[in-house]
């Protein structure tokens, strides 16, 4: 680990100014950042610990629910309002990491965690995301956990967050503040596709901090579920996951659907076309399967992750059926 200076400002403006200096990195819960620093993927010269900033807490507002960026995953998961109105978010949180990690990890940090691509995490191999221009060994290597959507010939790294999958399905807004003032942007626009520069993962500007998330309230948010599939029963990222929220009409058919999938996209992957196609569909495996079939369009699987396409379709059906059972 390279020596670095450390500060923990209480004033957001100081934090932003410090974080904007090249070579500086922001530290929240540190559950990802510390790993990256220890193994040399990140070598900041200065670490700005933002835990002293007033970005913690949960409030129900006219818009929906507002969750401070420094709120711990465990705090959010225990919040009664969130459990009631946005169960898919709570389920995604409870299926993330372990209780110990969730006690430390923050909502903002979770969205910005780096990929679990094995090559990104092992400094001894090339990786375009870690070392621009060095190559992408995952394309023809161990790519079981890599993405089938949104990849380029430079990078097919999965965005690993479970939370982001649930949030993107629900039109979550990300509130930020930076040297150029505050912004509100849809979570769907926070992450970039890898394209030619996989090392640049978000649209955040130097020094720009996430301050809060706002999740709108809706009938579909209330009737929502998260389904996560993985190699072991707990403490692991998703092979495939699906976040589904639905609103039903009086006949029990789908009036409105929200759907996003995890483990398959280079960013949190929403499926707007499927959402459209689901309108009016009956909540039965037979009716849902043909619609889920459409989710495979545009998938570009590699040798090790081809199974994810079919698994995703099945997960979508299950998640929708499960959402239908929410009362």
């Amino acid at each position: 680990m390279q020596p670095f200076s450390y500060s923990s400002p209480a004033d957001p403006r100081v934090a932003m100014a410090e974080a904007a200096v090249p070579g500086a990195e922001v530290l929240a819960g540190g559950t990802d950042m510390m790993q990256l620093m220890k193994e040399g993927q990140r070598s900041p010269r200065h670490v700005v610990d933002i835990n002293g900033l007033p970005y913690r807490g949960i409030a129900v507002t006219a818009e929906g629910i507002r969750i401070g960026a420094l709120t711990r995953l465990s705090e959010a998961a225990e919040d009664q309002a969130l459990r009631q109105g946005w169960p898919v978010v709570v389920e995604a949180l409870e299926a993330s990491a372990s209780p110990q990690v969730r006690n430390l990890a923050t909502m903002g940090g979770n969205l910005l965690q780096r990929t679990r691509c094995l090559y990104f995490r092992d400094w001894a191999t090339p990786c375009n995301k870690r070392q621009p221009g060095s190559g992408c060994p995952a394309l023809d290597g161990q790519n079981r956990n890599n993405a089938v959507f949104g990849g380029s010939d430079r990078c097919i790294a999965t965005h690993a967050s479970d939370l982001a999958v649930a949030l993107v399905a629900l039109d979550t807004l990300v509130l930020t503040e930076g040297p150029n003032g505050p912004r509100r942007l849809p979570l769907a626009d926070l992450h970039r596709l890898p394209g030619d520069s996989p090392q640049v993962e978000t649209v955040l500007q130097p020094g720009e901090l996430i301050t809060a998330l706002v999740i709108p309230a809706s009938a579909a948010a209330r009737r929502s579920r998260y389904l996560k599939l993985r190699d072991r029963a707990s403490f692991e990222w998703a092979l495939v996951s699906a976040a589904a929220g639905i609103d039903l009409d009086t006949g029990g058919n789908i009036r409105e659907a929200r759907l996003a999938v995890g483990g398959v996209g280079t960013k949190p992957w929403r499926l707007p076309r499927i959402e459209q196609a689901l309108i009016g569909a009956r909540l039965s495996p037979e009716a849902l399967r043909p619609v889920a079939e459409l989710a495979g369009e545009g998938a570009r699987p590699r040798n090790g992750n081809a199974f994810k396409v079919e698994l995703m379709k099945r997960a979508i059906v299950r998640a929708l059926l499960a959402a239908g059972e929410v009362t």
């Binding site: 094995l118 090559y119 092992d122 001894a124 191999t125 060994p137 290597g141």
Partner: peptide, 8 residues
Amino acid sequence: DPRFGRVM
């Protein structure tokens, strides 16, 4: 990964 001879 046989290209690197490494456990990834």
